[in-house]
């Protein structure tokens, strides 16, 4: 390597080190959100749509229970959707009497004693029991 070439090369390298970053802007931006954890908020859309006053009252009770009581509990329900969600959906679908009976039936089954009767949700490992 000639002296001139060496000087030019050394100058370029020092210039690079001083001013330019190797990682491009899109490259940096692509990784910027990698570790940002978004706060998960359950919205319960089905509880926010009520057809009459009775549904509105039950939806309000449900949302209050979820916000102030259920949030302080551990993961005790063995089903997905949970018993409270199931109860509200049931009341909205079948009315107060049949819906409440259906909800009580669900509560009697919420014990995990017969897991062979239900499929498991792979993500939450809870037993799937949807309202029919």
């Amino acid at each position: 390597m000639g002296k001139k070439t060496f000087i030019i090369l050394a100058f370029q390298i020092s210039l690079f080190n001083f001013f330019v970053t190797a990682q491009s802007l899109p490259e940096v931006k692509a990784h910027q959100k990698l570790m940002v954890e978004e706060e998960e908020k359950e919205e319960y859309e089905f509880a926010r749509e009520s057809k009459n006053e009775v549904e509105m009252v039950f939806s309000g009770l449900f949302l209050g229970y979820k916000k102030f009581i259920s949030s302080q509990d551990g993961n005790t329900c063995v089903f997905t959707p949970s018993c409270s969600e199931y109860a509200l959906m049931s009341i909205k679908k079948h009315g107060i009497i049949l819906g409440t009976a259906n909800a009580f039936d669900r509560l009697t089954r919420c014990n995990g004693l017969s897991p062979e009767k239900y499929r498991k949700d792979p993500e939450s490992t809870l037993m799937i029991d949807k309202l029919e």
């Binding site: 330019v20 970053t21 990682q23 802007l25 940096v28 910027q32 959100k33 570790m35 940002v36």
Partner: peptide, 13 residues
């Protein structure tokens, strides 16, 4: 995210 924001503000090629 803040660190990467600082890096993104540096002079890039």
């Amino acid at each position: 995210s803040e660190i990467l924001e600082v890096i993104s503000e540096t002079k890039t090629d």
